[in-house]
Design a protein around this nucleic acid. Structure first.
Length: 161
DNA sequence: ATAACACCAAGAA
DNA sequence: TTCTTGGTGTTAT
């Protein structure tokens, strides 16, 4: 697996790809903690640091972060439980600029009352922004949580609205 | 088994 | 408004 890191408007970005597609997109405040996070997460596998320009998938992902209004579909290589995959698929169906509550997302999956598990699956989202877990908020209008920092979630939603 | 959650609705102060 | 409480489904130990 190869990875590249670069600064962006929402902080430092680390992207990990396999021959099948993007398998992780992490965010952090600085390059060092980003690298550390990737090392912990992929402790089992060998990672090779390469240049962003070395693969069109990297540049496409960075372009999407810079301008998320373009709805390109990037190839993803996701690993997760069946339930997590369902949630992630639903997340990708939320259009730019819109939000949804955890409970209505659960209802969409045919499991009303499963708001909490849905939140768990959002928290397990391996690909920030591309799978827009930041568009899911609480039923009462408050933000809920965000794995990469509430400030970043606010920033993303602000940018879309 | 069991404990830990990025939740939610209702009820009390 | 903020608080507790009880109910909830999935995941990881």
């Amino acid at each position: 697996m190869r990875y590249a890191i670069a600064p962006s408007s929402i902080g430092w970005v680390g992207i990990v790809i396999t021959p099948q597609g993007i398998c992780a997109l992490e965010l952090a405040d600085d390059a060092e903690s980003l690298r550390e996070r990737l090392m912990v997460r992929f402790a089992q596998t060998a990672l090779l640091l390469v240049d962003v320009a070395s693969d069109p998938l990297f540049t496409a992902a960075m372009a999407y972060l810079a301008d998320p209004t373009a709805t390109l579909t990037l190839p993803l290589d996701l690993q997760g439980t069946p339930f997590q995959r369902q949630v992630w698929a639903e997340l990708q169906a939320i259009p730019y600029g819109q939000t949804m509550s955890y409970s209505t997302l659960a209802a969409k999956l045919g499991r009303p009352g499963a708001a909490r598990p849905v939140a768990g699956a959002c928290a397990a989202n391996p690909v920030a922004v591309v799978i827009p877990c930041h568009r899911v908020i609480r039923g009462n209008g408050r933000l809920g949580g965000y794995r990469w920092g509430l400030a970043r979630k606010r920033m993303l939603l602000e940018r879309e609205g």
